[in-house]
Amino acid sequence: MLKYIIPLVLFIIMAVFLGLGLTLNPSEIPSPFINKPAPNFSAPKLNAPQEKLTPADLKGQVWLFNVWASWCVSCRSEHPVLNDLAKLNAVTIIGLNYKDDPVDAKKWLDTLGNPYNISIMDQEGRIGIDYGVYGVPETFVIDKKGVIRYKQTGPVTVVDLQKTLIPLLDKLQAEPQ
């Protein structure tokens, strides 16, 4: 009897682990930034390159830091969702225009709409490295104290917005400065 039970038990254990493995997404890498201060930068604004933006300028507000590029295909599917979010006026949305040509970037915003309060340029991808960006689009949520509270890799969908982002933003907006 044992002869049959042992292989069966081994098979079940393996099946469970392999099954769990199927549900995981290997391209999702846990961010080491959660609950850490947002890395500093001083970057030219897309629409006014002579002006610079730093995270210190945004102290006291909850802001969304969205990494995007005109060459990024999944940014295109994310864009209408961000436009919807912008209409709600729930949060300051800052765009990081990552490794992009400013001309293409401006054209993209003109045709698809501009959900960003401000977009900054990172043509060499250096701010991207400081934020551990490895797949565009990525979205960080930063609280009033300048601490990163959440990060999403990949496009934000309507479901993400409803289930995760908006409840989180409400919570963060209620926090004291």
Partner: peptide, 8 residues
């Protein structure tokens, strides 16, 4: 690198 991208 690990500060930014984790142990991965």
């Amino acid at each position: 690198m690990t500060d930014r991208y984790g142990d991965f």
